[in-house]
Design a protein around this nucleic acid. Sequence first.
DNA 1: AACGATTTGTTCGTATGTATC
DNA 2: TGATACATACGAACAAATCGT
Lengths: 278, 278
Amino acid sequence: MIAEPKYRVIADDLRRKIDDGELAPGAQLPTEIELMEQHSASRNTVRDAIKLLTNLGLVETRPGQGTFVVRKIEPYVSTLTPSNKREPEGDPRLILGPGEGETYRLEVAKQLRESDKTEPQVEIKKASGSISRLLQIPEGAQVVSRHQERYIDGTPWSLETSYYPMDFVTKGALRLIQAEDIEEGTVRYLAAELGLQQVGYRDWITVRAPDAAEATFFNLPQDGRVSLFQIFRTAFDQDGKPTRLTRTLYPTDRNQFLVNVGKVPEANGIPGSDDQDA
Amino acid sequence: MIAEPKYRVIADDLRRKIDDGELAPGAQLPTEIELMEQHSASRNTVRDAIKLLTNLGLVETRPGQGTFVVRKIEPYVSTLTPSNKREPEGDPRLILGPGEGETYRLEVAKQLRESDKTEPQVEIKKASGSISRLLQIPEGAQVVSRHQERYIDGTPWSLETSYYPMDFVTKGALRLIQAEDIEEGTVRYLAAELGLQQVGYRDWITVRAPDAAEATFFNLPQDGRVSLFQIFRTAFDQDGKPTRLTRTLYPTDRNQFLVNVGKVPEANGIPGSDDQDA
DNA sequence: AACGATTTGTTCGTATGTATC
DNA sequence: TGATACATACGAACAAATCGT
């Protein structure tokens, strides 16, 4: 046992069977008792091997049922830059990001998938930390927060929260504090209501571990193995002032992003998955 | 024990002490024996608690030494879109991405940090998978691969591999297969040598777990935590043809990205870290 | 260079709790 | 309800890495 600990030998054996397709996605592994006998190891050693595989995200255990090979999720690809063709009708001065021009549902339908989202959950909060800093308002100033949960093909896909200065409401944008969708998009609504033109935005992309609530919503393991994209989008008006901060959380196991710069042909060869190798 | 398993109670306690700063980054946790006594638990239970924290990336264990709170690294922020101001001299038709216009070293110096990189490691390979698909060349066609390791402040920061069609070399771009840096940048070199203008590029951003070699280079844990940005950049010439594919790997714990769209003021309030909260 | 003390790593055995069918 | 399967917890022993003497 100088080289390889027994639990890793067992894990490697199972791993090979998974890679070879001998154990297909969704298939049940031998029970711990069976593995004990096959490898003449103790139950705890077998469990160490399985633990390693769960950490690697290859299998998942279900109490009372067994251990199963995980089914991989087909990732959804979002484009962070606007589409090349400007909208025919509508204010040409508005720079619309993805999900801001046409509806979320339409975008997802383009990839032949079904989307769904909850009604916005509206709150009035005090700005703090990143919110006040990115929106360039003092800490403690009031902001409207609009929160939505989004699903694709029935699975939880992203969590989005947008923050607007409370000013906007007092200046007349009353629908910001209605707990219902703004059909034409808040960008167009704020342009029409307050004359705010969204002339650009900046996305700040980070990755972090989910907290307990986020892990529950996305159905992720609690151990921080799978992480979340956290994208802060700061939108700017014609005066260079931040008008909106949107924070969206996307599990990294089911989301990917595209950024187009300059003149590029239509996207191609961006597959769902299964080749992240050289 | 209906509510909280003991190992998680122990983990939560340690976690709180870490969050409170009672256990500072780099500090050593109590030894397993001490934790056994403090919580009157068995060694295996204590070890389960530590395992959980390890999975969360909060602590690391060093055999023969102890368990330590991980030191967080100050993240480096890269901008994926070009800077607003075009270069004064130089071909105005070239769209230069970050690291393609001025040198990597200069960019990093702007953030008051020191960079370093290895000489490129050049190989001739056969294109396969994502490479052939994104470069739009047949599987098995020959490509030049140029690989570099990059460091910031002495720590390994990113791994970059660029792929060019072998054609380029036979057509005269001989410096592509020299194992030394191309000072003015390969974008300018190919423009001068072959008349290829880089008029745009597309970045495809994914996150995945490192393999063994990558984990070793970046000094990341070998468990299957998804902790690497993998960004494929496909560059296009004036004919809309892909001329280059660059794959760069960035550990998510020390890298963040910005994307600027439309008219945006200078970056501000994009802090290093420690506030990823609402 | 050798040794011992300390600390984590691996493995076994066993018992009991909890979830599912 | 019982059978099955995973989850938690305890105790014990030895191995391997590290550090100081």
